[in-house]
Design a binder for these strands. Structure first.
Lengths: 193, 193
DNA sequence: TCAAAACATTAAACTAGTTTAATAAATAAA
DNA sequence: TTTATTTATTAAACTAGTTTAATGTTTTGA
């Protein structure tokens, strides 16, 4: 059950077998059926999660009721609201399962225990946060400089496996456009071919 | 000269006086006159910097020649291209001084030395990267959900000290709009008052 | 298995933001 | 001090993306 997690950690840092074992034992499995929430706006995010099955969306609802998707998470991805988690303030985000999902959860307390007792864990999360940050920085530049059409094309190229599991409504909310306009883009692309 | 740096570090973590001293000694001062570059596209970013005087812009030039500003950095801010720095790949960014500036630089090698020998430094950069990431996440949501006008108003409220030191061209490149449209926005706001 | 809900597409009117170009004002350079 | 360069503003035509609404299709759930 935790093989995927161990493998994922090993990709980032090298730990002794017993250290990785100790760390993984701090995680508990949680099943989240489709359309259920791992986190809702207003709650304080007290966990960090690692998805072992299914698909989540992390999104925000603005004051006009529109949804902006910050990211998706499928198997092998980490998931949390890092803002609420670190500052212990009410979250502005929802984390919702778009499929029946399974996630390994570590509590804030246990994570702090790991920081204090397994020095390499500090490195693990530094490295992971760096990578996440780099990815978001690239997305920010793309959003500032590219048209919705090329953002869509790049999305389909970068995440083909996600594409099949998402509705166009979700993809549009990630790209920052309406699903109506996404439909236009898709038509335009289809005609080209 | 390094008082500002020490103070900034102390805000994030608690270190013994000799540890903070050892760490700060790894930094070297660099003077960058206005319009000069700390980093250019194509170079590998081999440093992390802490601004003690002046003002920098970190920006990207897209294939149409337009500039997108990822962030500004004034006194007391950190500055690097974390993507190029961690992956040791050619940077896609420019870091340019907009005023005569002074920056304290730590090399990649010395930073790794610090990670290996001062365990708290790992925490320092984990915490700093988290905070930077949270800020970028909020900016991403704002860019997806808000109009240019409200993004401009919020920028003026959040960074009043920056506002006076930047041209509208720079602010527009940060907001992701043209300076012509920013001019329209400013007029509209002025009329309202 | 049937009704209800969610989804994708299309059209048409609209608006936020761009483009190009011209002009005046401010800053920098010689 | 004069000239050149950068900056801010305005106008007018344009385009990328939105809004609303209607229609058919697919998925869901009772």
């Amino acid at each position: 059950m935790k093989a995927l997690l161990k493998q994922n950690i090993a990709k980032h840092i090298s730990l002794l077998e017993n250290e990785i074992e100790d760390f993984c034992n701090l995680f508990k499995q949680k099943l989240i059926p489709k359309k259920n929430f791992l986190l809702r706006e207003g709650e304080i995010c007290k966990f960090e999660g690692f998805v072992t099955k299914g698909l989540f969306r992390v999104y925000h609802i603005d004051k006009n009721g529109f949804e902006q998707i910050l990211y998706f998470a499928i198997e092998n991805w980490w998931i949390t609201d890092i803002d609420s988690f670190t500052a212990e303030t009410p979250s502005q985000l929802f984390i919702e399962a778009l499929e029946d999902s399974e996630v390994l959860i570590i509590s804030k307390k246990d994570k702090e225990f790991a920081y204090a007792n397994l020095p390499q864990i500090e490195k693990l999360f530094r490295v992971m946060t760096q990578k996440t940050h780099v990815a978001l920085q690239r997305r920010m530049i793309d959003n500032l400089s590219k048209t919705a059409e090329s953002r869509y094309i790049e999305f389909t190229e970068k995440y083909p496996q996600l594409l099949q599991r998402l509705s166009n409504i979700q993809i549009a909310a990630y790209l920052g456009i309406t699903n109506v306009f996404l439909s236009n883009i898709r038509k335009k692309i289809a005609v080209k071919k």
